[in-house]
Design a binder for these strands. Sequence first.
DNA 1: CACAGCCTCACCGTTTTTGGGGAGTTGGAA
DNA 2: TTCCAACTCCCCAAAAACGGTGAGGCTGTG
Lengths: 242, 242
Amino acid sequence: MGFAARTPQLEEILSQLEQSDALEELQDVIEKLRDCFGVDHMVYHWVSSTGEQYGCGTYSPEWVQRYLDQGYLRIDPVVLGCFQRFHPVDWKRLDWSSRAARAFQKEALDYGVGNQGLSIPIRGPNGQFALYTLSHNCSDREWAEFTERHRRELILVAHYFNQKALEFEPGRVPEQGQALSPREVEAMTLIAVGYNRAQAAESLSISEHTLRVYIESARFKLGAMNTTHAVAKALSRGLIVV
Amino acid sequence: MGFAARTPQLEEILSQLEQSDALEELQDVIEKLRDCFGVDHMVYHWVSSTGEQYGCGTYSPEWVQRYLDQGYLRIDPVVLGCFQRFHPVDWKRLDWSSRAARAFQKEALDYGVGNQGLSIPIRGPNGQFALYTLSHNCSDREWAEFTERHRRELILVAHYFNQKALEFEPGRVPEQGQALSPREVEAMTLIAVGYNRAQAAESLSISEHTLRVYIESARFKLGAMNTTHAVAKALSRGLIVV
DNA sequence: CACAGCCTCACCGTTTTTGGGGAGTTGGAA
DNA sequence: TTCCAACTCCCCAAAAACGGTGAGGCTGTG
C-alpha cells in the first residue's frame, strides 16, 4: 500500500468538493464518495457550536428523523466514543454494553444501518465537532481489510469535508473588537487560570487596584458584562490561551 | 499531482512513528521527517488541556527555552491564529500587526526560525490542541509551491503524529471522565455568556440556589478554584461552547 | 433492591468583586 | 511638541459570589 492510493476518481470528487459553494452540494458529493468507496452508507454529521446538528449522508430519512426526534445524539455510542478519541474508530471497538446502547444498535440495524462502521472524529475551532462515518454490511475480516486499505484517504476526506462545512457555518462572523494590551492579556490569563485578583496582582507585581483597571479595561474592550464573561470571550476569540 | 504522493521514504518514517513506544523517539522521527521534506525546521508543539506544553522539533534549544521562559505561547501569532482556524495556515496569512507580534517575529528570525512557515492545527479530545509546523527560508513562490505540493501528506503526518503523542499523554486518565451533567452544562454556558446567577437561574426557570449547586458541582468536577476558572476550563476542554 | 448520580430547594455569614470616583508617570505616534 | 494610550496607584460603598450544611424526589445501573 502506498502512502495513499492514487485514485483519479476520488481526486475528481474532492475537486468538486473544494469547488462547491453551497451546503446542498455536499449531499451530492457524499453520495459520490460512497459509491467511490463502495460502501452502503456514508454520513457527515456536524454538531455545531450552538448544539444544533447538521448532517448529510445516505441514511434513510426515517432513521435520521428518528435519530433527531429521540435525541439519540446523547446515547449513540459512536458519538460518545468518538468524542473521547482522536483516531478513526471502528464501531466494534466501542462500548455497546449499556442497555440503551444495545437497543439503539438494534434499532439502527432495523433502519438499514450497516453492521460494520468506521467513524472519524473531527474537531474544529470553537468546540466544533463532527463525525465522518462509513457503514457497511459485511464480515469483520472484509471490513478490517477495507478500513486498513483506505484509512489514510478517509482521514483526508474527512478533513476536506469538514473544511468545506466550516466555510458554510452560519453566524461565524469574526467579531473583531480591539485587541487587548499586553498587560491586559497577562491579567486576563491569570484570572482565567483561577487566580483571584489579589493573587494575580501579586503574580504581576502590581497592586490589586491596578490589576483591577486591566480587567475592567479588558471587560470594556470585549463588551463583556462581567469578568467571567470577559474571560470566556477572550478565550473564544483566542486572545488569551490557557 | 496524485491524491497524495507515493513516497516510500515517507512511508518508512511513518512506519517508525507508528511503532515508536516512547516520547523520545518522536524527536528522531521528526528530524527524519524534516530531512524527508527538505525543510529547515519541523516542530510538533502540544498544549495540553491543563496548560502544560510539550514539543519536539528542530528549533535550536535556545529558542525553545526562550519561547518557554518568555511565555511566547500567549503572544505567538502562529498559535493564536491557528487556534481560530481549521486548515493549514501559512504564516504570511496571520496577523503580525501588533507590536509584540513584530518583536516576536524579529526575535524568532534571529534565533534561526525560517521566514516562511506553515502550521497545521490539530485538535484532540478534552480540548487538546497541538501544532505541527514547518519552517523554511525561501521565497514566497517557492514556499507556495512546496506547501501546495505537500499539503495532503502534511495533514496526514500531522494526524499521525498527534495520534502518537496522545498515546503518550501523561495524566490522561485523571482528566477524563469528569463530564458535566446536562444541567451543569446549561448553567455554565449561561454564566459564560455573561449572565449572573440570578439571570441564569431565571433563564433556566430554577431557583438561584439550585443554579448555584450546579456551578459549584461543575467547579468541583473541573477542579477549578472559582467560577471564572471553571468556565475557562470548561471552555478549554470543549465541555461548553459560547 | 440498594446505591449512585442528578435535579431541586433553603439559610447562614464571610469574602470577593464591582462600579463609581480621581491622579500621576511613561513612551511612542502625529 | 503635543497627545494619546498604556501603566501605575488609591478610596469607598453596594452588589455579587462563596462556602458550608442540610434535605427530598427521581432515574438508571449493578
